[in-house]
Amino acid sequence: MSVVSLRGVTKRYGDTRAVDDVSFDLHENRIHGLLGRNGAGKSTAMRMLTGQEVPTSGQVRVFGENPYENADVLSRVCFIKESQRYPDIFVARHALEAAAMVFPNWDQDFADRLVEEFRLPLKSRVRKLSRGQLSSVGVIIGLAARAPVTLFDEPYLGLDAVARQAFYDHLIADYAEHPRTIVLSTHLIDEVADIIEHVTVIDRGRIVMDDSSENLRSQAVTVSGPTKAVEQFSDGHEVLHREDLGGFTRVLVSGVPTGRDTASLQVEPVSLQQLVVRTTQFHDAALAGSGNGNGKGNGKGAWS
């Protein structure tokens, strides 16, 4: 069942379309990955579906209602973002206390355990917290709030690998006990590949991929071998990426061709990261080819 839906949503800032005629759904009790390059429109989409921004056109529905200024809907939505600022007069504890007042499903025991685990100094002024400690404030709020719709937008800037793993572990364990709709927006695709059940990729404000992880993985393969054989194999299918070396060729094909000769070829599964990156590049190249870019995409955007 869909708990969040965007239909033909566009958000324009001046001449730029940060989000351009986008439609997708978030399904109940599922972990979604919202992926894309810097400036692709992920955060804008999330701000619209949490009522923080209003779309220029199109329709946003959360639990069937418009989330803008809708206290009833918003109490069931928790949006954790990397850019969250906290009042200077706060110590870390105040942020958690405030969140505890707002979210009806808040679990204080869980929050206390997470504070322990992330070693968050509760009495430190937020201005004195490191980047990683600030991120853990957000992560703790996002997990302990147990909001039916929880969105994490790059929640772990500055968190070390151990802390990130702790976040994933807690997320999965708590999700198993208290299923909810979760959105993870991140550049670290490899790290979340095993967690996310549904993948939505946005590029230059448009959706370029929206399917279950399972489908995506089964649809694309990397094929390598003699150029001629590879070309025969991939003929008529979408080649997202191609590398040539001597007489050998390696391609990433989407839509796995069936019943074709693979005797001289090596066929391998594709990692989600590879698929997402190559699809985005393919989409970018197609746009550049047709001169249809909206000027928003920046060639320097990094995946790191």
Binding site: E69, P87, I89, A98, V102
Partner: peptide
């Protein structure tokens, strides 16, 4: 002044409406 420049963005970040 700080209520609006600092507390307001934080409160909206934890799902409080502008009206409230």
């Amino acid at each position: 002044v700080q209520t609006m420049t600092q507390m307001f963005p934080f409160a909206l970040g934890i799902s409080v409406t502008r009206r409230d």
